[in-house]
Nucleic acid binder design. Structure first.
Lengths: 233, 233
DNA sequence: ACCTGAACACCGTTCAAGT
DNA sequence: ACCTGAACACCGTTCAAGT
């Protein structure tokens, strides 16, 4: 009946949450659960107590696997980087950087809370460093000087993160919602107060088919094309 | 002796903070004090209780002038936008957008906490709307179509905010610190683990005179030049 | 109208104690 | 080694009470 690991020491669990509780707690399981919680309920819902509950454990048990909450957040960010397909060093730099940019954007769309956490003053994790290493390798391999690699890195990553920040800050999630909310906003403007913004909304944002997210690739290609010209200098 | 406003009702203040306490509390004074506190001590130090203390008042008094903490944060963001010199509608679009981008960047350097708060799901404030109105007016006046205005807006503001986010996330503040910390990081890399990153640091980041902040204008001009070409299409 | 003080339901984290 | 429970010093916000 009892396995070789010892006699059954089954104290009845008082609290049983949706999350299956079985395997031992590990750092990976803690991070994964934290990411799921932040994805589902927002980063402000992520507390040590709530996360413990999700894992069927007291909050303090988490501290065995995580130094503190900042360490938890840093680990979550690094896990997001681990999800990103790094740039291939075999492909042409431009297609490699384009694919990688789309992969970063997809990851930030899956985990919107990650963008605002990028400041995490903690040291960058392994996955983050590896990602940066390959980006630099890709640009260097594509013929960029060190100085131009620094320029390209700053403008590309700045754009990618900034676009995610803008996207997240929009008060609407879907194109349909955009219409409703933009209309509402428009109605609240004192007449003639913001004429250019009003015209822009009426003539562009409120037209069917507009989706802010679609703007991403335009800016990305604009930057990549411009970088290509600079590389040839 | 007593003024027309009534007899002196001076109850002795028990707590007196550095901040001079005199004038009546107003929304402006609350916002200004909150901004100063966030600038000086970081956004995580900004609590209602601490802000009240700074103003010589109990935390609950703040709620007369601010709906809740989210409203406080939204007000702070709008106050930062009010600091920005908006684009001139008289100047050439390119110089107007360049000056305005530098003004936004300067504001975000003065108030580093603002970048991460841009998501504030609250409705944008008056100063924010006015700023956006003038940016759109500037681009439209410069000959951009509505669609191209949307593109330009997304790529410019994305870059500006994203660069601020990157800048803030760097673990060093000054070029000198960069050297020290980069060296330290480098020393901790397992040998050969991040070869491109290591070479980049040794050959570029650690060279005297390197300052990440200097990258901003390169990317800005790259984008502005590329937009100019698109406008002419 | 504006400010206060006590209270409530939360936080992150410590520490000593359990197994 | 891992997990717990009580405790501490905080949060944002409510409410009834003061002036």
């Amino acid at each position: 009946m009892a396995t070789a690991t010892g006699p059954a020491r089954r104290t009845p669990r008082r609290r049983q949450t949706a999350q299956a509780r079985r395997e031992r707690l590990t750092r990976e399981r803690v991070l994964q659960s934290a990411i799921e919680l932040a994805d589902a309920s927002g980063i402000e819902a992520l507390s040590m107590r709530r996360l413990g509950e999700e894992l069927g454990v007291e909050a303090m048990s988490l501290y065995t696997h995580v130094a503190n909450k900042d360490d938890l957040l840093a680990g979550m960010i690094d896990a997001v980087f681990a999800e990103i397909t790094p740039p291939s060093l075999e492909a042409h730099w431009k297609t490699a950087m384009r694919d990688r940019a789309l992969s970063v954007r997809a990851a930030l769309l899956r985990h919107p809370w990650a963008t605002g956490l990028m400041d995490a003053n903690a040291a960058p994790g392994e996955a983050t460093l590896l990602h940066h290493d390959l980006v630099i390798g890709c640009l260097r391999g594509g013929g960029f000087s060190f100085a131009m690699t620094a320029h390209a890195f700053a403008v590309l990553d700045g754009y990618i993160y900034g676009f995610a920040l803008q996207d997240r800050s929009l008060p609407f999630e879907t194109p349909e919602e955009t219409g409703d909310l933009a209309q509402e906003m428009l109605a609240q403007f004192p007449a003639g107060r913001f004429p250019h913004l009003a015209a822009f909304m009426v003539e562009h944002v409120l037209k069917p088919g507009y989706d802010f997210g679609d703007e991403f690739e335009f800016g990305l290609d604009l930057i990549l094309d411009a970088l290509e010209r600079h590389r040839e200098d």
